[in-house]
């Protein structure tokens, strides 16, 4: 039985239904990401787990205890917010120790735990500072330490990296993942950034219009998307339409629409590729180690990625080329 279980969860605001039949089991110590565009209901699910929203129906169980009727302050769930939400009137150490103080921990216990947490987030010397004296990344790390200090059963992260600049975002997400692994804490992470979700999650829940479209490992989500929405939302995609006979480039693939990732399409003929399409190069973007080529083929624009090779300059715009791909790499779209 999963540690955190969400069953048939629904939420409506008036006539507007924002979460529909949401089911999820999270194992102890697992890192789950809720991924989706804004307004897809991912934050609402998180807020229902935290207790800030009451579900219209459904159950949320933590360690087989139903928490739906419990107030947020009775759930022992740690939460990190996009806007940091550090208490401006308290120092870093007081912020981190806040939850323990509420629990009535002894002063020496609090001091020890605060020191431990500040060491964990790599800011052991900043305990006496006020939040306004810290950078955004530091504030968010303090917020993480504050959420973890009272040893919560579950950690919820609500787009914690969105307010930070790109470089800090990457380093902090790795740090969050390392700390999460270290403590083995069950974590739900909400994000609209697919790269973030793919890079740090054990599993991803892709949400669309209040429904969990697909649940799977990053590898599954990326390589075997089961719906058109997931295929489109996660990673870049080339769309192929089979002809009336169910063929693409003369190879029988079956009826319907198919997709292929840019890295599955090759410039020129590859030994393992059975589909070959004549194409005209429209754009070439040299990105360093990777060259992204956009070409017109079979009435569609196809993007493909190829590794840079010093002995092979990229094709010229307007030149005629052949694109090849394996029919095994085609993703059928529902």
């Amino acid at each position: 039985m999963p540690y955190l279980e969400i069953a048939r969860l629904e939420k409506s605001f008036g006539a507007n239904r924002v979460v529909t039949d949401f089911n999820l089991g999270v194992e102890q110590g697992e890192f789950i990401s809720l991924l989706g565009p804004s307004g897809c209901g991912k934050t609402t699910v998180l807020r229902m787990v935290a207790g800030f929203e009451r579900p219209s129906s459904g159950a949320i169980r933590i360690g087989s205890e139903d928490v739906v009727g419990k107030r947020p302050n009775q759930r022992n769930i740690g939460m990190v917010f996009q806007a940091y939400a550090l208490f401006p009137n308290l120092t870093v150490a007081e912020n981190v120790g806040f939850g323990l103080k509420i629990k009535g921990a002894r002063r020496d216990e609090i001091t020890a735990r605060v020191a431990e947490m500040l060491a964990l987030i790599g800011l052991p010397d900043l305990g006496a500072r006020y939040p306004f004296q810290l950078s955004g990344g530091q504030q968010q790390r303090v917020a993480l330490a504050r959420a973890l200090a009272p040893k919560p059963r579950v950690l919820l992260l609500d787009e914690p990296l969105s307010a930070l600049d790109a470089k800090v975002r990457v380093s902090l997400r790795n740090e969050i993942r390392a700390i999460q692994r270290d403590l083995g804490i069950t974590t739900i992470f909400v994000t609209h950034d697919q790269e973030e979700a793919l890079s740090i999650s054990d599993r991803i829940v892709v949400m669309n219009a209040g429904i969990a479209d697909q649940v799977g490992t990053p590898f599954e989500i990326y390589n075997r998307p089961t719906t058109r929405f997931v295929a489109n939302f996660v990673g870049q995609l080339n769309l192929f339409k089979a002809d009336d006979a169910g063929r693409i480039g003369g190879v029988a693939v079956g009826q319907g629409d198919f997709a292929a990732r840019p890295e599955a399409v090759h410039l020129g003929r590859e030994a393992e590729s059975d589909i070959v399409l004549p194409a005209t190069v429209e754009e070439v973007h040299f990105l360093g180690s990777v060259i992204r080529v956009t070409a017109a083929a079979a009435g569609a624009r196809i993007a493909l990625d190829t590794f840079n090779r010093p002995d092979m300059p990229p094709p010229a715009v307007g030149s005629a080329v052949e694109l090849s791909l394996s029919s095994r790499d085609l993703i059928p779209l529902k």
Binding site: A50, N73, N76, N89, L156
Partner: peptide, 29 residues
């Protein structure tokens, strides 16, 4: 001047009740 909603939720998630939120988070700020 303060983000009342988020600060309140942060305090709640740390176990604080309404009286604590008012006296230790909202009033000092």
């Amino acid at each position: 001047t303060i983000d009342v909603a988020t600060l309140t939720e942060a305090a709640q998630s740390l176990g604080a009740g309404w009286a604590t939120i008012l006296t230790r988070v909202i009033l000092p700020n």
